[in-house]
C-alpha cells in the first residue's frame, strides 16, 4: 500500500499524517478524537489487551501505527 498521503495536511507547516489530514474535517476530528480517547483511556478491558489487538491488527493490515 502506498505510504504517500493522498491529501495534503490541513495544518500549515505540518506534514501530512492521520491527524493533520483529519483536520480537513474539524467536526469529525473532534468527535473521533473524543471517542478514540474514551476507547483507550476508559472501559472494562485492560490496556495490554487493547494494545495487543491494536498491534496485531496493524501487522496484518500493514498499518504503520
Amino acid at each position: 500500500m502506498s505510504t504517500v498521503p493522498h491529501l495534503p495536511s490541513a495544518i500549515e507547516g505540518q506534514p501530512a499524517h492521520f491527524g493533520t489530514i483529519l483536520a480537513h474535517h474539524p467536526g469529525l476530528a473532534t468527535s473521533f478524537g473524543s471517542t478514540y480517547a474514551t476507547f483507550w483511556s476508559q472501559g472494562v478491558l485492560d490496556h495490554p489487551t487493547k494494545e495487543t489487538t491494536r498491534i496485531r491488527n496493524a501487522r496484518i493490515t500493514d498499518c504503520g501505527y
Binding site: H6, L22, H24, H25, L28
Partner: peptide, 10 residues
C-alpha cells in the same frame, strides 16, 4: 472536497 473525502473514508 478534502473534508468530504475524509468523511467517505471514515
Amino acid at each position: 472536497s478534502p473534508a468530504e473525502q475524509i468523511a467517505i473514508m471514515f
